[in-house]
Amino acid sequence: MATSQVTAALAAHPFLEGLNPNHLEKLAQLAFEVTFEPDQIIFREGDPSSFFYLITSGKVALEIAAPGRFITIQTLTEGDELGWSSLLEQVNKQFRARCIDPVRALAFDGPRVIAACEEDHEFGYMVLRKILAIVADRLTATRLQVVDVYSAKGAHGK
C-alpha cells in the first residue's frame, strides 16, 4: 500500500478523527497494512509488546486462557484499536488476540511510535490523548461487564 493510501486509511479511521495533517503524515510513515486469516493468532499473552494495530475490517477476539479453554473478554472490530500496550515500555501482551474473520489492519511498530513521540512532544501528546480515550472507553466497558448486569441475581453488589 502506498503511503498516500495509508494516509487515507488512517484519516478514515475513527481513532485519528480530527488529527492535523502533519501528524497524520507522520503516523502514516510509521504504518503498514497487514492482513490475517480467521483463527490466526495476532499475538499471545506474554508476548513482548511490539505492534499496535488499527483494525480496518474484520473481527478480533481478545482472549484469556483458563485451564482447558479460552474465554473471550472482548471483541474488536473495524474502527477499533488493538494492542495499545505496545506504546508503553517493558509491558508484555496481556491477552491473546485471535482473528474470528479475515482481518485487515494498519500496523505500527510500538518502539518507533514511542521514538517519534519523544522526538516531537506535540505529536506525542496527541498520540497519548488518543490512547487515553481508548483506555477510558475500554475501562468503562470492562467495568460494565464486571457488574454482570444480566445476572439472574441482578447486578453484583446488590
Binding site: 473481527k59 477476539a61 481478545l62 479460552f70 473471550t72 472482548q74 461487564q145 454482570d148
Partner: peptide, 23 residues
C-alpha cells in the same frame, strides 16, 4: 448481538451492547 462472556465457539461480538452502535 453481543455477550459479556464468550467461549471459543462463539464467533459473535463480546463486549457491552453500546459497542455495537459503531456498526
Amino acid at each position: 448481538c453481543t455477550v459479556d462472556y464468550g467461549g471459543v465457539s462463539w464467533r459473535g461480538y463480546v463486549g457491552v451492547v453500546t459497542t455495537l452502535l459503531r456498526h
